[in-house]
Amino acid sequence: MIDFAIFAVTMIAIWSVLGISLHLQFGLTGLVNFGQVMPFAVGAYGAGFAAAHGLPIAAGIAIGALLTPLLGLLVIQPAGRLAQDYWALVTLGAGEIFRLTMLNVPAIAGGVEGTTVYRIADRSLAMLLALALLGAAALLARRIGRSPLGRILRVLREDETLGATLGRNPFALHRLVTVVSWTLAGLAGVLYAHVVGYLSPGAFTVGETFLIWTAVVLGGPASLPGVVLGTAVVELTAVSTRFVAQWSHLPFELTANLRLGTFGLVLVLVFLFRPDGLLREAKARSDADRR
């Protein structure tokens, strides 16, 4: 039971970093990234590439941390000044392309067979690392969210043209947000690889992207605590499916499908009945502590 708790906390922490990454992109800035699993996968495959080629762990971290923002810039280049529909399509396509590349080019990290990565044997250490990463990501997101930068990002979310007529280049700000949020997701991916110890393309599908979306929409995209809360709920449901299957004597596959259906239903119901999510964006008050 203790082992399960440690594992659950580790996973919630890692996925919360992904949620925070989406909070910065969507909750603050209004960018609809339907390929959110991609930076996560790029980070994980940085570690996977290093492991498959006998490079040290540090090299994997470096590859993951550097390649993710670079690929992010590459992906938003075509989507840059287009309507959100196209942005969603391009990020979705990019995420799938990355997964298909990992699947079909075994030279990178084992193709469909996947690859084993050094696994952090001490599970408590893994959990502490995940919590540390979550803490750093949350502090950074909080710093941005409460700053003039966060303010102008929210203006872009509300009305991009307004931002431009106020003398800000929306595209430059989008690039900045992409670099920051993708780097966070990439680091989460590196850590995920070393926690799980094994990577295969099947772990980075569109389904994972929508797991994060469900979590963020449920918790409240524009609220940092909301995002972590949503991720905790969704990820706890995800990791406990096996126990639910055992306990209810339903087949595992059916339980997994019911879970997927529930997530879909949650996305729809939140939009119908609580469009801001469980926790709303905090109002910035003029008399509030302005640190």
């Binding site: 941005i144 003039p148 303010r151 509300e158 009305d159 307004l162 106020l166 109002k283 910035a284 003029s286």
Partner: peptide, 29 residues
């Protein structure tokens, strides 16, 4: 009128000014 409608009146006024240093990540950190 184009406004950031889910921001407060004061916040809208603040973004009317030229970009302050706090809009740069470097300065923030």
């Amino acid at each position: 009128p184009r406004l950031a409608r889910r921001l407060t009146v004061l916040q809208n006024m603040l973004v009317g000014a030229p970009p302050p240093p706090g809009e740069s990540l470097w300065h923030l950190l």
